[in-house]
Design a protein around this nucleic acid. Structure first.
Ligand SMILES: [Mn+2]
Ligand SMILES: [Mn+2]
Ligand SMILES: [Zn+2]
Ligand SMILES: [Zn+2]
Lengths: 146, 146
DNA sequence: CGCGGATTTGCAAATGAGTTGAAGATGCAA
DNA sequence: TTGCATCTTCAACTCATTTGCAAATCCGCG
């Protein structure tokens, strides 16, 4: 079982092979970065971060998609027209993920605790909305920009 | 005052001139379509819709941005990497808009009634989150795809 | 260990939505 | 009407994303 904070190289390799992916060096680097990140990461950010280690943008790009296809990560647009990738973590209980917040002003992304946003049922709310919602995104001003 | 459902050409012209925009034919067409739409509209959709009337994609594009800059419309990404434009309506009370729902499966966009989503404050919710949120986006399966 | 076939990488090039330049057309205030 | 600023059009450009392909590599198997 892979746990946050204490990931050996072997843990990462195991995680990849369990997902039927080869444990190549650039793929391990991408997976490691996703584990280290505490918010979703864009391809551009990750490609820039891994360029010094010698990994190609296209390789990073394909690996992000591979991890997503394999079900290890999710690819999302948090409402600012940027694709971001985030590891699926055990802390996201039902398979439903925690809400995200993006600052209109500075673009900062933050992860909110599960349950901090509630779907209310009012007279004209569509039927069973709550059960149908799998993802919640908020936009506004962050504490710093407010 | 411009009201939904009953917009004469003169109403549209007035709305543009009040916003310091010239009332040109393509601009009136764009504004009319936004009024007729009951969900946010993408540039591609509107350009396709207006092409038969003879209006150019770049003209539609610039007009959507003009209307946005003038404060008549909002430009948003509802979480599916598509820019959509929506008229600012009086029914959006505080300047805060109603929440939106996008279907993961078919891409259908729908507008939800204001107040159908609530920001809950729990022990580890960031401070004053509720006051800082200006926009709420939900994703999931629509009734049809569910 | 070493092989061999399937997967993956790296570089370069294609793609395409989004955006812009520029010349001519149009709106509108005077 | 006229004059000028604004707007439209069409073509061209930008640039992040996505793909093609030959060479490198992974890893199950002998
Ligand atoms: Mn998150
Ligand atoms: Mn709406
Ligand atoms: Zn901010
Ligand atoms: Zn649907």
């Amino acid at each position: 079982m892979v746990r946050a904070g204490k990931l050996s190289l072997d843990d990462l390799k195991t995680q990849l092979r369990d997902a039927d992916l080869r444990a190549t060096a650039p793929r391990l680097a991408v997976l490691r970065c996703l584990h280290e990140a505490d918010t979703p990461v864009s391809h551009a950010e990750l490609a820039d971060k891994l360029a010094p280690e010698g990994w190609d943008r296209a390789t990073v790009y394909r690996n992000l998609n591979d991890l997503t296809d394999a079900g290890l990560a999710r690819k999302r647009d948090l409402g600012d027209h940027v694709w971001r990738f985030e590891l699926l973590r055990a802390s996201d209980t039902h398979g439903d993920a925690h809400p995200h917040f993006v600052c209109d002003e500075c673009g900062e992304v933050s992860c909110l605790p599960e349950g901090s946003v509630e779907i209310k049922t009012t007279r004209n709310t569509p039927v069973r909305l709550k059960e149908r919602v799998h993802e919640i995104q908020l936009k506004g001003r962050c504490e710093r920009c407010n």
